[in-house]
Design a protein around this nucleic acid. Sequence first.
DNA 1: TTGTATGCGTTATCAT
DNA 2: ATGATAACGCATACAA
Lengths: 347, 347
Amino acid sequence: MKRPSQVDVAKLAGVSRATVSYVINDQTNGSIPISEETRQRVLDAIAELGYVPDASAQALRLGSTKTIGLIIPDIHNPHFWQVADGVEQEADIAGYHILLSSIPPEKKFAEDVFKNLSNRRIDGLVMIPSFIYQSDEAQKTLAQLVKRRFPIVGMMGDQGDKYQKIDRVISDYRDITAEVMQHLFSLGHKRIGIIYGIDVPNLGTDRLFVYKESLQAAGLPIDQSLIIECGPTIEDSYHATKKLLDLSSRPTAVLAINDLLAVGALRAIKDFGLDVPRDISLFGYDDMPMSKFLVPRLSTASKDGEKIGREAIGLLLARLNDPELPPQEVRLPARLILRESTGPAPE
Amino acid sequence: MKRPSQVDVAKLAGVSRATVSYVINDQTNGSIPISEETRQRVLDAIAELGYVPDASAQALRLGSTKTIGLIIPDIHNPHFWQVADGVEQEADIAGYHILLSSIPPEKKFAEDVFKNLSNRRIDGLVMIPSFIYQSDEAQKTLAQLVKRRFPIVGMMGDQGDKYQKIDRVISDYRDITAEVMQHLFSLGHKRIGIIYGIDVPNLGTDRLFVYKESLQAAGLPIDQSLIIECGPTIEDSYHATKKLLDLSSRPTAVLAINDLLAVGALRAIKDFGLDVPRDISLFGYDDMPMSKFLVPRLSTASKDGEKIGREAIGLLLARLNDPELPPQEVRLPARLILRESTGPAPE
DNA sequence: TTGTATGCGTTATCAT
DNA sequence: ATGATAACGCATACAA
C-alpha cells in the first residue's frame, strides 16, 4: 500500500494535478475559481485515498519547512522545559513544528547538531547558546549562518557587545543576584556558600560573578572553600552540599545555582541534622513549578522561562516575516521570590 | 547572500553537479572513483561556500527525512521527559532527529498534529498514544497509517487485543499497583485515598482499576469520597489532598497518581499539621529523579521512562530496517521502590 | 574519470 | 474552468 500522491488523487477524480492543487490551497475566492462539482469530486478523492501532501516536496517547492529548531543545554532541568514549553506553545499557534535538540555535554557533537539543524530542515533556530562559548567550530558555523542571514534567536544572558548581530532574548541573574546577596546580608549572613553545579562553563557565571562582587562590596572575604563546583544533577549537589557542611566553619546560607540543585542541598542539610532556614538559609534559582510546594517552600529568583520561550518565537516570527529587520533585543527581568527557605543567620 | 547549492559548488570547482554529489557521498571506495585532485578541488569549493546539502531536496529524493516524530501527552511531567530523553539519546546514536509534539489536552488539535506528523515530514512515529483513546478522528488516521504500514511505535499500557497491529512498548502499573496495595494493607492501612490527577482519560486507569480491585479483594469498601479526581498540576493535587484531609474520616494512606502530584500532596499534609509517614503514608508513581531527595524520600513505583524511550526507538529502527516484520512487542516491568514516605497506619 | 538526463511531489505560470 | 509544463535541489543510472 503506497502513499498516494497528487497524481493519484487527480486520476481518481478525473482531473489534472493542477486542479487538485488548486482545490487544496483553496484559491476559490479570487483568481482561479473551480466549479463546486469538481471541487467536491476532488475532495472525495482525497478523503478516499487519505491523501496528505508530502511535506518534503512542499518544503522544496516553497522553501519553507514550517519547522523551527530548538537547542537547549540540558533536558533534565525544569527551567529549560519551561522555555521549551513556551517555545512550543507559541510556535504551534503560528503553525510551526519544533525540532528539539538537547546538547548532552559529553558529546563533542555540538557543532554537528548545530550544523545539521541548518540544512534547511528548519526555517529558523531558537537556542540557548551555552555550547557556543566553548566551541570554536560552533562559533564559525554561527558566523556563517549570520552572514547568510539565517534566522536565529538566542536566549541568553547579557553578553555585552557580543552576539549583537542576532536577535536575542536577554535575561540573566546579574541584577537579581545583587538583590539576593543584599537580602542575605541584611539577614546577618556573612558566610555564604554557593553550589556551582553547571556542566557548561559560562552558563552560571552571571550568578557567580555577582556573588563575588557583592561579597567584596560588602567588605567580606571571598572564601574559595565556600564555592563548590559540581555536576548538574541533584546527586552532585547533594555531595557538594555535604562538603560545605563538613567545613570547620560552615556557611549560614547556601546559594544553589538552580532550584533542582537546591533540592539536593535541602536533603543534604536535613541528613546532616540541620534545619532550613533555622540553621542554614537556602536560596535557589529558576522557580521551578514545584519550588513553592517544597518543605520548606523555596526562596528563589526566577527568569520566567515560558515567557522567554514565547518572546523568542515572537522575535523569530518577526524576522521570518521581514528578514531586513535590524537585530532585535528583548530584555526580561528576573524576579525575587522570597519564601520560607531563607531566614536570619543563627545567633 | 543566497544559500549555495550543488550547482554553485560545481561551478566554482569547474566540474559537473554529479561529480560534486559523488564527492559528498564518498563513493570513492567501490564503483565510482574520483581523481584525488578533483576531489580536493570540490572539497575546497564546498568549504569556501560553506555549502550544506538541502535536507528537503534530499528527503524528497531519498524518501527519508532522518527524523522521527515523538508525541507525548504532557510536557510538564518529568516522567514523559525521561521518555523523551531516552528517545532522543537512542535516536541520536542512529543519526535521527526528533520532532517533538506534546499534546495539550485543551486543544482539539490532537488529530491535526497527528496528521501533520505523518506528512512524510518524519520517517516514523513514536508516541504515548493517550490522545487516541478519546478521538475518533485520530483513531481513523491511525488506522490509515497502519494500513499504509507507516512505522509507528506506541508506548502504552496493556490494551488487551487492541493496537496489536503496531509495534509497542508495553509498560503499565497494573501488576505493581497490586503489590503497592498489598504493601499498604500489610502496614495496616484500610482507608486509602487516591489523587487521580490526570488530564487525559484512560492514562491512569491502570492504577485506579487495580486500586479498586485490590480493595474489593481485601474485603474493603470502595469509598468514592476517597477517590479525588483533579487536574495534572501540583497545585491541583494540593487542593485535592486538602479535600481528602477534610474528610470526617480521613485516609491513613494516599496514593498519588504520580510523583509530581505527590509533592503537592506532601505539602498539603504538612500544611494540615500532619506528618508523613507517621500520620499518613504517601505513595507516588514514576520515580522522578528528585523523588529520592525529597523530605521524606518518596516511596514510589517506577516504569523507567528512559528505557521505554530507548526500546521504542529500537523497535522503530528495526521496522524501518525491515517493514515486513510482524508487529513487535516489548514488555517492561515496573519496580517497587520503598523509601521513607510509607509506614505503619497510626494506632 | 566525468558529464547528461531523469525523477522525486509540489506549486505556480501560462496556455487553452 | 482546466490542463500542460517548468522549477525547487539532489542522487543516480547511464552515456561518453
